[in-house]
Design a protein around this nucleic acid. Structure first.
Lengths: 143, 143
DNA sequence: TTTATAGGTCAATATTATTGACTTTTATGC
DNA sequence: GCATAAAAGTCAATAATATTGACCTATAAA
């Protein structure tokens, strides 16, 4: 059992994590809501933007959702022209996804709020703090 | 506009945040699912545990949900004996909430997985890293 | 005594996700 | 060439989570 004072200190971190995540996702959520979109749409736009040419199956793995859960929002993004699709030349079963110009613009707007938050804070707290934060987050990721 | 290399680096942090949060909430989610409970129940147990004697209105503010959204899971927790209620002696409209012994036990189990993750990582990365992480998370929280 | 606050509840609706079953198209191993 | 598998898409049923809106009781305060 962990020392009680230490536990109280660690609980502070749990709360910071919860509230920080909420504050971090709130600005893009608001922009999305104005367009009738949700956080899933942001995630799709984000990862398609990061990995142009990614496939549906890859995206399913990255997002950790079912095919059925991805289908509706992805189709919606294709329909409104934010994501474009092309069949893979070597394997026509595979659909390769990419952002359109409009999609890239919206993605930049959404993610821009988060980039700005991080940049400002990393700048304020310094490079060592930034790297320490990333090491810790990476540790949590694979825990 | 941010430098492109810098932006790529910051995007790494966005992804770490996303995946770390998911990994951080997964273990308690699994324990909860076995009992037919959800993440809301954990949040309620957590904050009632942290602030024994808290009220329904306070909890609504902390969790950022509506009264109707809180009502069902909170009532459920009271019904199964994980949370106890007493009327405030000075203002009988106010209901004061606290964990029962069973509630405290489940809360400790749920939060224990997260405390263990943090303790192990903070121990590994050192005190400076821990404090830097907290400063950054606190900055995000109030951004 | 009027008004406000704390808490609770019913109803309707929306979103997001799940499991399960099934189809089409295309590749690949034999 | 044929059986099998993989990638993508879709329909249906269900569950959970949350919302807005309306309304109620009990208690406190002006």
């Amino acid at each position: 059992m962990i020392d009680l004072n230490r536990q109280t200190e660690l609980r502070e971190s749990i709360e910071l994590f919860f509230f920080a995540y909420r504050a971090f996702t709130a600005p893009p959520d608001r922009i999305l809501a104005d367009r009738g979109l949700g956080r899933v749409h942001h995630r799709i736009l984000y990862f398609v933007g990061r990995q142009p040419g990614t496939t549906v199956t890859e995206l399913l793995g990255t997002l950790g959702v079912t095919k059925q859960a991805l289908n509706a929002p992805l189709r919606q993004l294709v329909e409104v022209g934010l994501i474009g699709t092309t069949a893979d030349p070597d394997d026509k079963r595979v659909k390769r996804l990419a952002l359109t110009a409009d999609g890239a613009a919206l993605e930049a707007e959404l993610t821009g709020t988060q980039l700005a938050m991080l940049e400002k804070l990393f700048d304020k707290e310094g490079r060592d703090a930034e790297l320490a934060w990333k090491r810790l987050m990476d540790g949590l990721r694979q825990a």
